[in-house]
């Protein structure tokens, strides 16, 4: 009997360890948290477990289970290098938003990739100032090798001295896989500071990131005059088209997010969505054929679409 109990205990300990590794709430911890919350109910909102960064938009925050994790990895990728503007814009907007929210004096670390800097330029201080980040708010690092970049990200995440760390990566390098991202994730978790991985022109890949966004460009909002009227033809606040590819939701969520640099607030851009869908009609217009009622539906296609069939 005693041996059995010891085995059980070992099993529970291992389960807890696995849950801790995976970042899932532990059953025992959750119970303890509830008990604590019952003791002083006013602290219920500030859940000691996982701090989050809500974006201030109900639908998005619901999909993000309260917001982006402040103690973990978030990945923002683009499918093409040409979309670097919107992805960097979203990451930098997030940093500015986080800095404003936390009223933090600590700078944001931008770990740049040298080739991406040649392809898409380097963050520009004067533009960033208009975007909501002062020149002193950003530290730039230009490591020569990916190993150095990973070391930097790890040190930065572990030091806890930085408001956020942005790691810019191009493509899907061999040396940055699941193991490395898990390592970074653990560091970020230990220090409680967020780490944003900005991946240009990359495929989806397994990583430790809690959420992964695919960023795409979207038409900017109209320029608004001080009295609230809209100036036609102007290019206003930036809008990003974001697809939440990885989350606990089964279906990817797609939305248009507008960043207001002056108020430092996100909002949903419905107008941009209309313009965008008008300018870029979908490849297969029209609804799919309804399922036949009198016989079996044909079996769904296996695997992903590699090439479309001939149209003519």
């Amino acid at each position: 009997m005693a041996g059995n109990a010891t085995a059980q205990e070992t099993l529970f300990a291992l389960r807890e360890q696995i849950a801790r590794l995976e970042g899932k709430p532990l059953p025992a911890l959750v119970a303890a948290e509830r008990a604590k919350a019952a003791e002083n109910p006013d602290r219920q909102g500030a859940r000691a477990g996982r701090p989050r960064l809500p974006l201030g938009i109900e639908q998005v925050d619901a999909a993000l289970e309260g917001g982006l994790p402040l103690d973990g990895l978030t990945e923002i990728r683009t499918s093409l290098m040409g979309n670097a503007g919107s992805a960097s814009g979203f990451v930098l907007a997030l940093s500015a938003y986080l800095k404003t929210r936390e009223r933090s004096e600590a700078p944001v670390l931008w770990i740049g990739d040298v080739v991406s800097a040649q392809e898409a330029g380097v963050p520009y201080a004067a533009g960033l100032k208009q975007f909501g980040l002062n020149p002193d708010d950003i530290l730039y690092a230009w490591p020569r090798k990916l190993e150095d970049a990973l070391w930097l990200a790890e040190t930065a995440a572990a030091s806890g001295a930085l408001c956020a760390t942005i790691l810019e990566i191009r493509d899907n390098p061999k040396h940055f896989g699941l193991t490395e991202s898990r390592r970074l994730g653990l560091r970020a978790k230990a220090a409680g500071r967020p780490l944003f991985v900005l991946r240009h022109g990359a495929q989806e890949e397994a990583s430790c990131a809690v959420f992964r966004f695919l960023a795409e460009p979207a038409p900017a909002s109209e320029r608004r005059l001080p009295d609230g009227s809209v100036l036609g033809g102007g290019i206003g606040h930036p809008v990003f088209r974001l697809i939440l590819e990885k989350s606990r939701n089964p279906a990817p969520l797609s939305f248009f997010l507008e960043w207001n640099p002056r108020d430092r607030q996100f909002s949903l851009a419905r107008k941009a969505a209309e313009i965008s869908s008008f300018r870029n009609p979908s490849a297969h217009p029209g609804a799919r054929l309804p399922a036949p009622a009198d016989r079996q539906d044909r079996s769904p296609a296996l695997g992903s679409v590699v090439a479309f069939e001939r149209a003519s």
Binding site: P107, P135, P143, L152, S159
Partner: peptide, 23 residues
């Protein structure tokens, strides 16, 4: 710890690696 971080990175990767933009 921020100063410490800057020193560590500069010591390891060279002072040129970590930069600040000034207007």
């Amino acid at each position: 710890s921020l100063v410490d971080f800057i020193d560590r990175v500069s010591a390891r990767l060279g002072a040129e690696c970590l930069q600040v933009a000034e207007l």
